[in-house]
Amino acid sequence: MTARRRILGLDEKQRFMIALIAPAVLALIAFQIVPILAGANASFRDWSLHDPQKTWVGLKNYLHVLGDHDFLTIVLPNTFGFMFASVGLSLVAGLMMAMLLNRRFAGRWLVQTVILLPLMVAPVIAAIMVRWMFNDQFGVVNAILGLFGIEPLAWLTQRWTAFFAILLTDVWLWTPWFTLLLLAGLQSLPPEPFEAAQIDAASPWRTFRYITLPMLRPVMVVCIVIRSIDAFRTFDIVWTISGGGPARATEVFSIYAYVEAFQFLNFGRGSAAAIIGAIIIVVFAMLLYRILNRWVEVSK
């Protein structure tokens, strides 16, 4: 038996493994790591997009963002409020639909297909549709309300009604995603506990409360963490429906960073805002994961 030839201390199997992951690692470095480092570099510099001086300014951009009253009192509360509301509502609606689709009934395949349709719509297209649906003159929402004698509303001119339109769009877009994952989770649950519950004549609610929900928690944790991170950085639907208005009332973190970087062309400040947002969401995701993990452990 001949000894395997080693290059740079790696045997053939190790080299093959490296060759397999190399393209993905290179893509990650080129399209994730390098832009993040470039953005981080810009955040410490006086870097306007139209006239990049690139002089070192230390933490000036960070201090500006963290000292911005609107960032602290409007943007962050809006971002977290949107995230909690959207994830919470999508989770509940997704779970309800998954429970429904987990039962056998005529036309189930059709309902499954229809429910998944929002996943096939680009968020920006959905947002444009919603903006017109909530238009106070031409919108279908006011037209329907009018049938019940309700006065037309100028939805996008007030904070909470505009926020409602944005939230509704996001929930509509993401509920199918929750449905899909939770349905997969439901279908993978072992049948024995449910059969035992049936023998014990447990009510459907108690079966759901004490068997389905605890067993589904690991899937729900993954869904909540992934979707929370995603909701934190939501940009397209807010930008299209309200532009962060009226008067910044629906502005979220990603709009703040975008406006600084690409409307005011202050790339340094926009990058600082983006890095601050990234740190916030990393810390938040870690905390959330620990809390939810504990919840899963307790449920075991």
Partner: peptide, 21 residues
């Protein structure tokens, strides 16, 4: 003027004008 005008861009305003309203 319409109650929603503070949120209108030119597209919405033009649409109302072009609709003859």
């Amino acid at each position: 003027s319409p109650p929603g005008m503070t949120a209108y861009g030119r597209n919405e305003a033009n649409a109302i004008f072009m609709a003859g309203e």
